[in-house]
Design a protein around this nucleic acid. Structure first.
Lengths: 210, 210, 210, 210
DNA sequence: TATGAATGAGGATTCATTCAT
DNA sequence: AATGAATGAATCCTCATTCAT
């Protein structure tokens, strides 16, 4: 559990959870605006509605806040993704609809994903490994979807690469919005990405999905 | 010209160019290592081999250094990309070989591209627009390659999206190296990405390229 | 009574005594390790086995803890010294054996004496006077021993100075242990100091004592 | 050289010496007043007449200031002591006069000695060893004086102990001034200490010296 | 032009103390 | 009486930037 990696001087575990979720909420909105480095711990405390001293009862360093934020975002993405994934009845149609859910999720969380993207590098080695491992798991989820739902055999290598492609294309919608969201609506974007993917796999893509 | 956007108190234009290229060189290697925020101006000056005072004769703020760096990287990428692009004899084969050149270029400059990726956000609005505009031009180059070399008509929208995909897949090789470069060699990676692209466009991809 | 100088919000006097002795015990071991300034009130509370809130029920400021500690050490030293002092049968031999007891006591309590030595300065003027007064009493005890046990008349001034010398030589064994305890065993040290003292007073010191 | 143990970002060596001596001067007067821990770096900077930033150009941590202070005091004491020591014509009379110089020196520098006494413990292990080594050297000087000037053979052990006694008696004049300086003038104090020392060594002490 | 000493606003973190439960 | 969460003033230290030489 990520929470356990951060030491607190508070004993009440529930309170820790509550306060930390406040911290994450406050910090996310600040990190969005100004990035991790330009945000001060005082601002974070203020945004959370408590004093600087209280902030430091729940974390040990500023980097801990970043770790909490990054970990929380990962959690959310994974939880929401898991919700949408159903491998019981694999078919092209369910495949497409899962991909759509994925793209919509990435659209919905683009701000958070942007943070993930730009600030993970500021974590210390150890936390970074932890976070990257989590990302690997998420790519793994997409990979499994691909392997399970597609009719023809696909090599594990190809599946992994396509999962990475999809993952990045999902993120790309957010971090390249300055170029993409001027050209496409989300639906257009999704439709095209999915079409290229399926055609790339030799699956005829008529006008299904959506 | 990007250089003109940064004021210097030095008159000699040639000297400015020379010193600034020293600055870029020194800064790039530091930014790679520790990122923009964790690099101090003193370190930059030292790395460049001159004093902090001299550094400030050629720039006005630390952000100027970042701008110079980012701009220089863009320049290099573009120059080296342009070298490889030849639209005189469009064909699938030249298309493939251009893409390969592109991937190799991104492999070669992955450190620099990473900087581009992670630090552009630290630029002030104005510089950022300038830089993003440059990136648009580069995507435009890929777009033109796609439109020109591929036999069948392709919609401008599709071309643009594919250009973005390619562009990001090139960068992805570097910034997701922790996952990709453990799974694939560069050649494997390129081969696969190109294959998926062509198949996605309905072009049979046998064993050409490379 | 020193205890009365410190205000508590607790009514039960016995409880106050009990808790304060816990405080002293915990604090001494921490002050030994890290000194007064580097020890936090939280650490003290923890070491004592109760909460920070409880700690503050029995003292008003961190300095109170230091005062309690210093006072308690003084008390111990005095009590244990008094035990050993017997002026009923004055003689050179009892003199020597009392001095030996004194040196052994200082050896035994060197950690505490060190605290006394290094931290008294951190007390506020008023507490400091109180503490110094206590020290004066202890030097007075040595002084009386000297005056009573030595055969020849000795001027009060000389007696006072010698008492101070002895007192500091006792402490010195602890706070200069890095140099003294590498050169001498306690017995050697005592034997020599006592010999010089007696000879300085013109009393032949053969091989008595111990 | 102690100065070399502290890193500075300033290049001009002479300036470093000058500024550091300012730092020492300012810090000594503050440490006298409030002790090391209660003195802030800002106060030190202000006392020295420069900004906090400038202070930190010449030191790296607050502890460095303490080290500079302690080292400088040691240096002064040693230099001034060395001046007075002349082992060319050893005799009881020169011995006495050297001891008197020593006591006068300790009287003159009692404030500084007090700092030495109370704050050395706040140094980190490494600096502390360095400082204690220096103190050993000073005790060694007194030891040599004893061995050289006294007529009868004296065991090295005894010489070492007496040197320590003298050293501490010198310091004691300052750090126990609240008790000693109320009872004795400096001359009385010296005269007595020297007398006891000589008699302790079996040397008849009439009314020589001074 | 080049240098590098000086500046001080700003930032992360600590910790004695309080007070509601 | 006991608890421990909350507070925020205080403190150390950094670093971008300036300017006299």
């Amino acid at each position: 559990m990520a929470q356990d990696r951060i030491v607190s001087s508070i004993k009440d575990q529930e309170l820790i959870m509550k306060r930390r979720s406040q911290i994450v909420q406050g910090a996310v909105s600040l990190f969005r605006e100004k990035g991790f480095h330009r945000t001060t711990t005082r601002e974070i405390a203020k945004e959370c509605g408590f004093s600087i001293g209280t902030l430091y009862e729940y974390i040990r360093t500023k980097e801990d806040v970043l770790f909490l934020v990054v970990d929380s975002i990962h959690h959310q993405v994974r939880d929401r993704l898991e919700e949408k994934i159903d491998l019981k009845n694999p078919s092209i149609d369910t495949f497409i609809s899962m991909l759509e859910s994925f793209f919509r999720l990435m659209d919905d969380m683009q701000e958070e994903v942007l943070i993930l993207y730009q600030e993970v590098k500021s974590l210390k080695r150890e936390s970074k490994s932890y976070v990257l491992e989590k990302e690997r798991l998420m790519v793994g989820m997409l990979e499994r979807v691909i392997v399970t739902c597609l009719p023809d055999e696909i090599s594990p290598q190809d599946a992994r690469l396509l999962a990475n492609n999809l993952f990045v294309q999902g993120q790309m919608w957010g971090f390249r919005r300055w170029i993409l969201q001027k050209q496409f609506t989300l639906d257009e974007y999704m439709e095209r990405q999915i079409r290229f993917l399926l055609q790339g796999l030799g699956i005829s893509y008529t006008d299904r999905g959506k």
